[in-house]
């Protein structure tokens, strides 16, 4: 690995490693906890020299960066782990991909550059349809909805539900329709401070129009930092 970041644990060197992966198809139906277990087992099968947490039941240390909710695909997800050898990026990627179950694919590995707190936004792609509307009708209704002055919705928080206006948070929305579905891409606040799920927006649409939506795609495309660059 280039520019390795070394942590010393019990007098041994470990290489901080950030692994980027794709989560698609079968893997989108599982929760964060299930993803965690799945990748832990993949590490075990790969026999990579990975660091285990201390304690009575040692577990492979994996720290996921903004875990995805069930139902979402991820085009470029990531987690941190620690390896006791400085292996090449290629070797790490290959050894993991050999043992990954369907729906998980490792893209690359590198020493972490930025802190998780530097993430501020995420880009999403959503494709949806409705049993009652044609895609083109749905498209114009969604367009109208997105151009309203305010998009109020209830957001659950630790202090109970509260009303929020989604409108100021939405960036770069773009819509198109094909014969089967409407596709919406947009950017929303993400990170450790404020995080908005795009389905908040589509739920608000259903609430205001009475049109229930079926999703053929919910995908987080990338995590972005303040300067607009991708998190890495």
């Amino acid at each position: 690995m280039r520019d390795p970041k070394i942590v010393v644990i019990h007098n041994q060197n470990y290489f901080d490693t950030r692994i980027f992966f794709q989560k698609t198809s079968y893997a989108k139906y599982i929760s964060h906890l299930d993803s965690y277990r799945t990748i832990q087992r993949a590490f075990k099968r790969s026999k990579l020299p990975v660091w285990y947490t201390d304690g009575f039941n040692p577990k492979i240390y994996l720290n996921f960066i903004l875990p995805l909710s069930l139902g979402y695909e991820g085009a470029r997800e990531s987690f941190d782990c620690r390896l006791s050898e400085n292996l090449s990026e290629e070797e790490i990627v290959n050894r993991l991909n050999e043992v990954m179950p369907k729906g998980f694919r490792v893209l690359d590995a590198a020493a972490p550059k930025h802190k998780i707190t530097s993430i501020v936004r995420a880009d999403y792609t959503l494709s949806f349809f409705s049993e009652t509307e044609t895609p083109s009708a749905l498209l114009s209704k969604m367009e109208a909805f997105l151009s309203e002055d305010q998009i109020l919705t209830e957001k659950r928080s630790k202090k109970g539900p509260k009303m929020v206006d989604l409108k100021p948070s939405i960036q770069n929305p773009s819509l198109f329709a094909d014969e089967s579905a409407v596709t919406l891409t947009l950017s929303l606040p993400a990170g450790t401070v404020s995080n908005l799920n795009p389905t908040l927006l589509t739920d608000a649409f259903t609430q205001s129009t009475g049109i229930p939506l079926d999703f053929s795609l919910l995908r987080r495309d990338r995590l972005l930092m303040e300067n607009g660059e991708e998190f890495c």
């Binding site: 139906y29 069930l70 179950p101 369907k102 729906g103 349809f129």
Partner: peptide, 20 residues
């Protein structure tokens, strides 16, 4: 099926495709 599975509580019960 793919979009219908998003409507149920635990879709991974019905997908198959597991390792091995």
């Amino acid at each position: 099926l793919p979009s219908l599975l998003l409507k149920v509580q635990k879709p991974a019960r019905y997908t198959g495709g597991e390792l091995n």
